[in-house]
Simulated scan of single mutants.
Amino acid sequence: MASAGRREVILTESARLFSDRGIAATTIREIGEAVGLNSGTLYHYFKSKDAIVSEILVSFLTDLVERYRAVVAEPESARTRLVRIVRASLEVADLHPYATEIYQNDFANLSALPSYADIADAVDASHDAWYSVVEAGVRDGEFNSGIDIFEFQRMMRECVFMSVRWHRNTLGQDIDALTEMLTTVFLNGFVPPPSGAPTPPPVRPRKRAAKQTAAAEPTQPEKAPDEVQDIRSELDSLRTEMRAIRAAMADRVDTP
């Protein structure tokens, strides 16, 4: 196997082990066994375990910040850019398996890493991107000026990255549904619209969103009973997840 390919295998398997066991509890020997190398050979690819952790996180955060900056620079509404930031977060987390979980699990120990300065700078840049979009929305009258900007963007950001943990095994398939659900809840709320206001379209379950219909039927907007039940089930699941968020917030750390 080429050196570059072997490095990628080491990074992927290491990330899985770090996520499952924690950085401190994972040994170089265990990483070597996972990729079919002895410890001595592994050191030809990485100088230390900390160097592996650093590369996993720096690579993830670098991609994340690049995506965020591209979104922030777009001349679009704050709402559109915030939706794109949510989607970018999920897509990058899917491209870098377990990096989000490693950051969350070992946040208190990251300052010992050799690339901690780069990690901290990237995290600050990612937070600034979220804040700037929400601030622009408040300034332009798109978002509620009565809600604290910092707290709102932090709560939404943490919910997005906690969703990565909950949906890790199916994240690639769930990105569309998660993006729509998260932005709908945070931007539209979870209460019915005022009387007379147009009702926004429901979040469709992924299994139905993937289907193609033979022809549009605009004269029959009613929802089928099974589709209504699917939507209710999706909302019930959301209630459960939001309760988990509130519990986690008591002991939370800032996410990327």
Rank of each mutant, 00 (worst) to 15 (best):
F143S: 02
R165L: 15
G141E: 01
M156H: 12
V160N: 05
M155R: 14
S163G: 11
F150N: 07
R139Y: 05
M162T: 08
E158C: 10
R165N: 10
E151T: 13
N144D: 12
V160M: 08
V138K: 06
M156A: 08
G146L: 09
M162P: 05
F161K: 05
I147V: 14
E158P: 07
M155C: 13
F143E: 04
D148L: 02
F152C: 00
I149E: 05
E151S: 10
C159I: 07
R154M: 14
M156W: 05
E142Y: 01
A136N: 11
G137R: 03
V138E: 03
M155T: 11
C159T: 13
N144L: 02
V138R: 08
F152N: 00
F150H: 08
C159G: 09
C159F: 15
E151R: 11
E158Q: 14
M162A: 13
E142W: 01
G141N: 03
R168Y: 10
V138I: 14
M156I: 05
E151W: 06
R168D: 08
V160R: 04
W166S: 14
R154Y: 14
E158M: 14
I147S: 09
R139E: 06
M156T: 06
R154A: 11
R154S: 10
E151M: 11
E142A: 05
R168P: 03
S145T: 11
R157N: 06
D140M: 06
G146T: 12
M156D: 04
E142G: 02
W166R: 15
E158F: 15
R154K: 15
F152K: 00
H167Q: 11
E158I: 11
